[in-house]
Design a protein around this nucleic acid. Structure first.
Lengths: 134, 134
DNA sequence: GTAATTAATAAAACTGAATTGCATATGAAA
DNA sequence: TTTCATATGCAATTCAGTTTTATTAATTAC
């Protein structure tokens, strides 16, 4: 049983061939990838299938999403906790190559909220140029 | 000369009727609004005109944009500095009513970046429920 | 002031990512 | 097997965002 397969099973999802391919691609990417990027990487799997797989993965807290203003990007949760996703970390979006990087060395600093606001999650995106592009 | 008109002029833009309408709508909204929201608010101005106006305003640092994952939203820069936009502040996106609020009481806390990354701007979005929706 | 030139606008068409409907295929269970 | 639910590919749809084109309005030159 591959690593991807057991990861999928551990989250209560049936590990079909396509789902293993998607999980593997996410793992290989090593950074958050968009639906379109996955579509390119996986030419044997249809876009709609990738989309449905990602949606399923997200429901089961196997992946989480970030929005960098370019696209919704998916990445495997670093904390492999099937119950929920306390896996928040900042990201860096390169405005030249349009790639997004995890900055998982640092937690997202929190800020005080005005009365009445109930926070659920935080998106922290730094934009600029990555080492290769500057 | 209206407040909107002089604001537009101060940024080196010719204050046409449509542009004044867009600037007024942004001012009245009091929070970041999307192109679609403006389209609804301004039924005399065509979508493409609003879009081009917003693009122009952004180039001249009269508005800035934030991405909350729902849409690109525009707001008047709080610092009325025609040269550039040092107007970064966190936002709160309500997952129920899909409105976005400025949290301009606090600056965005910064984080250390790995070597080589050149930051240009930051998007800090807290998501959850606003006081009216919780 | 009038003609020539440039800028601004509306309307429509286009794009591309995200999403859904539907018929078929696959796999698990009896 | 046969049955049944699930998963999948393909096509079609949606919708925000963007661009094109033709027209109108405003500036500038004379």
């Amino acid at each position: 049983m591959s690593a991807a397969e057991s990861l999928i099973s551990a989250h209560g999802i049936r590990p079909t061939a396509n789902r293993i391919l998607v999980a593997d691609a996410l793992s290989r990417a090593g950074r958050p990838v968009s639906l379109t990027e996955l579509e390119t990487a996986l030419d044997t799997v249809d876009k709609s299938g990738i989309f449905r797989t990602l949606t399923l993965f997200k429901e089961h807290h196997l992946v989480h999403t970030i929005e960098d203003g370019d696209a919704v990007r998916y990445e495997l949760c670093h904390s492999h906790d099937a119950a929920h996703d306390d896996d928040l970390h900042p990201h860096f979006y390169c405005e030249k190559c349009h790639r997004t990087f995890c900055l998982d060395g640092t937690p997202i600093p929190s800020i005080p909220l005005p009365d009445g606001f109930r926070p659920a999650t935080v998106n922290y995106i730094v934009k600029g140029l990555c080492p290769e592009c500057r």
